[in-house]
Nucleic acid binder design. Structure first.
Lengths: 333, 333
DNA sequence: TAGATTTTTGCATACGTATGCAATTATTTC
DNA sequence: GAAATAATTGCATACGTATGCAAAAATCTA
């Protein structure tokens, strides 16, 4: 039974006061090199480590970031999780992982985040009710919607510029010679799907190109089934824009199953540039989300807000770029 | 500026003592129905929520589980993360997510877990030095290695029975008529790869079937490149056992690229039964890890240890089952 | 109904740290 | 080297909760 070692114990051994011990571990406090050395030696000997809870209790701050995620099946998001975790670790923050099943994050999850007084919240793949947002505001906890945005102007969001991106994709497919296009949507109520649809539609209509839209759900099965349905109804277009990569892979598999050659018979463009998009079997043309910038932008905002809460709301949109692969090569019969 | 509301405030409004408020929120404490009602109403009105930090400080317990993960690229692990998060949420625990880059979890990550006094630790795809394990023991923090095990008998681990599984896979491939087999290993120092290799080798040698082993690294690229190398060296076997699914997908893609027909020219068996294994493009025969049981086993152990620490060490191994798909159908030329 | 017993309550204190303030020590200035 | 200034230290207290103990209230017993 190891007795728990506190700052007081260290202080006694080092022959200083508990305050001095505290100051050694508190960034920016003033301690002489001499005491610091004594304290660190004593701490080492006793195996002392500051108690985060006592710390948070008194500073009323934590070094915990709440990260809310829904779709761990879509490889894009584990990647986001990993990067945030690594980046925040560098500046001493840890990640409280919250998994939600709903598009809109629910009360029980919000309670967790509030009970732990997280320093900030990142919501990657879901949204938030206005009243929930108020709760965070009341507690001066900054929140970022990552890869989602909300029409209400009370939220800070960081996205790829979905509108511009999907317009570019539209231009690209038309330039490639497509004359009959299809858009396969993600979950209907997500900002990403809505904006990708809008941008794409804008351009396609501008060029008077035929477009048919299909609803789906951002999953592999969704893409696969939608494509099968399109094929069985003999509505095959000569170009697909699929709202995310994982669905696009499903589409490609359905096409392959039906001996429909890509890119010759039809072309496919996805969105996200997940790792699998570059696998030789798929070689999917897609839009690369500027993940690093998006993460950097999110962190900059959050760190500032943690230091100095303003509650400012804004939609940040960062351009990505088209990654052209084999699913859209110029068609030669 | 919303003033922070504490148990004292609630007490005043409800006309009771702070102790009574505390008792309302503390499971198993004795409070009359009357006071409970008064307190809950007052709390509702003020928007009170207990401060987890003050709580942990005094109880010296937390409701936080540390979950350490390395390979978020392998879809098996996000699934694990999701399930643990959901299950633990049901019993009031939250997940502190720790990402490690090393096979062996490093000091800085251990510090995080210890500083937060996590109630328990789950390490999913890495291991731990003996001295690090001692630290957790000293602090009476139970640790489970999930899907990894260690020869030293100081660790509690929960795995699928890799030995039995890989023996069964060996028997299966031989029964399918394979006479020249290949094993593609995962990271060399992982228990999973070692045991899968051993079990498979045991059976193959018993049947005097030819076997060649290749080293790789549990990634898609690893599987892909290894298979390409095998092909270019003209060492193509008539059956592969690949140590995990994500590598097996790489193998399948390399085979397809070289117009090698599966299962006719060669067969492929993976391990994990990740979602993608069932995708029509791959249709991979694989071993299903009994994830639900593994998670249940882990949780039962941890909850008991949290209640009543023993530090008992044991290797739990649970059988899975072979999922036969198209990559191993009986060969007919 | 009075006494015995159980349940509920409030008081006071403890958990381990950070921090304002005053006292002490070290450093600078002339 | 003395005075002025700056840096460091210790003291005491506060953070918001849980809990042992004793007092009070409620319930039971006969």
């Amino acid at each position: 039974m190891i007795p728990k070692v506190t700052a007081k114990d260290v202080a006694k051994l080092a022959g200083v006061s508990q305050s001095s011990v505290s100051r050694v571990y508190f960034e920016g406090a003033s301690v002489s090199a001499k005491t610091k050395k004594k304290v660190l030696e004593a701490a080492e000997e006793l195996g002392y480590r500051p108690n985060e809870f006592a710390r948070s209790l008194i500073t009323n701050r934590t070094k915990i970031i709440g990260l809310v995620m829904k779709g761990v099946q879509n490889p894009f998001y584990p990647q986001v999780l990993k990067q945030f975790t690594s980046e925040f670790k560098k500046i001493g923050y840890s990640i409280l992982f919250v998994h939600t099943n709903n598009d809109e994050i629910q009360k029980d999850d919000i309670d967790i985040l509030l009970n732990y007084h997280v320093a900030a919240v990142i919501i990657t793949d879901a949204t938030l009710s206005l009243s929930a947002m108020e709760e965070f505001k009341d507690n001066k906890i900054p929140v970022v919607l990552f890869n989602r945005k909300v029409v209400k102007s009370d939220f800070y969001s960081v996205c790829c510029n979905n509108l511009k991106a999907s317009e570019a994709i539209g231009e690209f497919l038309i330039a490639e010679g497509c004359t009959k296009l299809a858009y396969i949507a993600g979950n209907a109520n997500t900002s990403t799907s809505i904006e990708r649809e809008r941008g794409f539609t804008n351009i396609v209509e501008k060029h008077n190109v035929h477009l048919k839209k299909y609803s789906s759900d951002y999953t592999y099965e969704g893409g696969y089934n939608t494509a099968r349905e399109i094929i069985s109804k003999k509505q095959l277009p000569d170009g697909f824009f699929v709202a995310n990569d994982i669905m696009a892979l499903g589409v490609l598999d359905a096409l392959r199953e039906n001996q429909i050659a890509v890119p010759n018979d039809t072309k496919v463009v996805g969105f996200d540039n997940i790792e699998m998009a570059s696998w030789p079997t798929y070689n999917l043309t897609t839009w690369e989300q500027p993940m690093d910038e998006m993460i950097a932008e999110t962190m900059t905002y959050l760190i500032n807000e943690i230091e100095n809460y303003t509650g400012i709301a804004k939609n940040i949109e960062i351009d990505g770029k088209l990654i052209v692969r084999e699913t859209t090569k110029k068609g030669v019969d």
